[in-house]
């Protein structure tokens, strides 16, 4: 039982990261109408930037966090014109092109990370940012500060995100575009500009995720983005592409599932088992558990 509780807590903290990643991914899918497959690579890149900044500023946590947020937003906005250029020709090219473009961006990021930073070795974040100190320890159950922080930030950010989506003018425009882009244009919502808001917002989300990731894992490696990218795509398909609420549940579910497999079977099987279960789900429900919004 203690193993179970401990692993559920672990799973919830990893799951909160999946949830945020899926939320950012879905936001871009719904509003900017792209499949940003390499969104997690952008997040990992921001982790590296944060690490670099902390290294040269004497482990300043504040500057590190600001660097993560800034670089993520910047990268998101730099990629926006590329995506929008591709989307403009959508009469001839289907939406998958955006996914391939995103894969190209991901290739570049991963390779740059493995060449230009730390000789391609995994980087370790300084202890001032990483919360590996246990706050609570009962038997086998131990909760680290990193876990508490990442779950706390996760809850706050997701609530803020949904508040923005359902209570503000920009959120209303987001939902309108998600439902019917051409109808939204008829009403007078500028598609490109609102799309740029969504790029900025997903960049902000990405920076937050980078900080959470650093707190939880304590390290980052060039291949981390790719590993997570597959899971994020899988989660969003299982939940139903573009289904934000579904992404919350499935993201947390995947985190818990992985943690339980790690706790009871063996760590190296967690990916395989998680993906087999997801494969079965997608065979039974091709539109996802919660229904696709596309």
């Amino acid at each position: 039982m203690q193993v179970f509780i401990a692993q559920v807590i672990n799973g919830l903290s990893t799951g909160s990261i999946y949830v945020l990643l899926v939320t950012g991914f879905n936001l871009l899918l719904l509003v900017a109408m792209i499949i940003h497959f390499s969104y997690p690579q952008v997040v990992v890149f921001s982790m590296y930037i944060a690490w670099l900044v902390m290294k040269y500023t004497g482990n300043s946590v504040v500057l590190g966090i600001l660097a993560a947020l800034g670089s993520s937003i910047l990268l998101s906005l730099i990629s926006a014109p590329l995506f929008q250029k591709v989307m403009k020709k959508r009469g001839e090219v289907d939406i998958n092109t955006s996914m391939v473009l995103s894969m190209g961006i991901g290739m570049i990021i991963t390779d740059v990370l493995s060449h230009a930073f730390n000789n391609g070795l995994p980087i370790a974040f300084p202890a001032s940012l990483v919360g590996s100190a246990p706050v609570l320890r009962v038997g086998l159950i131990s909760v680290t500060t990193g876990q508490v922080w990442s779950m706390g930030i996760g809850i706050v950010v997701v609530s803020l995100f949904f508040l923005l989506l359902y209570r503000t003018r920009a959120g209303r425009a987001f939902r309108a575009i998600a439902e019917d882009p051409s109808g939204a244009r008829l009403v007078g919502i500028p598609l490109l500009r609102t799309g740029l808001y969504s790029y900025t917002l997903s960049g902000l989300l990405g920076g937050t995720i980078a900080v959470m990731f650093a707190m939880l894992l304590g390290y980052a490696s060039p291949g981390l983005g790719e590993q997570v990218a597959h899971k994020v795509l899988a989660v969003s398909i299982i939940a139903g592409l573009g289904n934000l609420v579904g992404g919350l549940f499935v993201g947390l579910g995947l985190g818990i599932l992985e943690a339980l497999v790690q706790g009871y079977v063996s760590g190296s099987w967690s990916n395989a088992i998680a993906f087999v279960i997801m494969l079965i789900i997608i065979l039974v429900k091709p539109k996802g558990l919660f229904g696709s919004k596309l």
């Binding site: 209303r172 939902r175 309108a176 439902e179 939204a184 008829l186 009403v187």
Partner: peptide, 22 residues
């Protein structure tokens, strides 16, 4: 628009506010 192009999954209030978006 033709065919009463309202946003079907959004509330009536949201639809009206979308009209005032600008």
């Amino acid at each position: 628009p033709e065919g009463r192009g309202v946003f079907a999954s959004m509330s009536v209030l949201d639809n009206l506010l979308l009209g005032a978006h600008n």
